[in-house]
Simulated scan of single mutants.
Amino acid sequence: MIQPNKTQATAASVAQFISGVESERRRDEAATLLGLFGRVSGQDAVLWGSSIIGFGSTHYRYATGREGDTATIGFSPRTAKISIYTARNFREFPDLLERVGTHELAVGCLYIKKLEDIDLKVLEELLTRSYEVARIDYDARAENN
């Protein structure tokens, strides 16, 4: 049974969203992450909901029968922390989590206070592996197809 997610891809401008972020540091961090996520995914950024910048699209189906679409990887430059999202579980990559730097972790979300607290090369590897696994396991679709 397909139930729409609360957070859907929109046609809103990612650039306009980022320019509206209050903190200059967060705007700068968002610009850095735009490049990194774009490199990893090979996709254009799409605003999902009102505050998540997503790359790629993944269709998921749970054992309960619930299914839907979500960004394969994405981030949100929130006030307190940057939220980094994946369609996979970051805990699948413990070697990279140990090396990425200071963070907090939830199932599909990595929270970072500021980019200078982490190793961007390790984050890129973590996102690359997560993106590749999601494309295989969930048959992720490119946003531009």
Rank of each mutant, 00 (worst) to 15 (best):
Q16F: 09
P94C: 08
R26L: 02
R135D: 08
I84K: 10
A87L: 04
L96Y: 08
Y111K: 13
T72M: 03
G108F: 03
A71R: 00
G65Q: 00
A9E: 05
R99K: 15
A134N: 02
V46H: 03
C109Y: 01
A12F: 12
G35C: 08
T79R: 13
I112Y: 08
D117K: 02
G54T: 00
Y85L: 11
I136C: 02
I18T: 02
A142R: 11
G68N: 07
K6V: 08
F55S: 03
I112F: 07
Y131C: 09
I53Y: 02
S130T: 03
S19Q: 15
A30P: 07
I82Y: 08
K81I: 10
S13L: 02
L34K: 06
L34W: 07
S13P: 04
I84R: 08
D28E: 11
Q3E: 14
F55M: 02
S50N: 10
A87C: 07
W48H: 02
K81Q: 10
V122I: 14
E22P: 14
I82N: 10
I18W: 02
G56M: 01
Q43F: 01
A12G: 07
A71I: 01
A31S: 14
G56C: 00
F75W: 01
F55E: 01
K113D: 15
N144I: 15
S51H: 08
F75S: 02
S13C: 05
A80N: 12
L123C: 12
D28A: 12
S76W: 05
F90R: 01
L96W: 06
F37L: 04
T79A: 12
D44C: 07
S83L: 11
Q3M: 13
K81Y: 14
A87G: 15
T70S: 13
P94T: 07
A142M: 10
T10G: 03
D44R: 14
G42Q: 04
N89S: 15
G54V: 06
E22D: 14
E98A: 14
R99C: 14
A45H: 04
S41K: 01
E125C: 01
R25L: 12
F37W: 00
D69K: 09
V133R: 09
V100S: 09
A45N: 06
K113H: 11
R61C: 11
T64R: 03
G54E: 04
G42Y: 03
D28M: 09
A80R: 10
G42M: 04
A31E: 15
F55H: 02
C109R: 11
Y111I: 12
A106Y: 05
K6L: 09
N145S: 11
K114F: 03
L126F: 05
V100P: 14
G65E: 05
T70G: 11
V100I: 10
G35I: 06
T72A: 06
T7Q: 04
S83E: 08
Q43Y: 01
R91M: 11
A71M: 10
T102H: 13
M1K: 08
P94L: 05
E124I: 03
L105M: 07
E104F: 03
R78M: 05
V133G: 04
D119W: 01
V107F: 08
E143R: 11
L127Y: 10
Q8H: 04
H59R: 13
A15N: 14
A63N: 05
S41N: 05
T10L: 02
Y111F: 15
R78G: 07
R91C: 09
Q43V: 00
L33V: 04
L97E: 06
A71T: 01
Q43H: 00
L96P: 10
R66V: 15
A71D: 00
E116T: 15
T64N: 09
P4C: 07
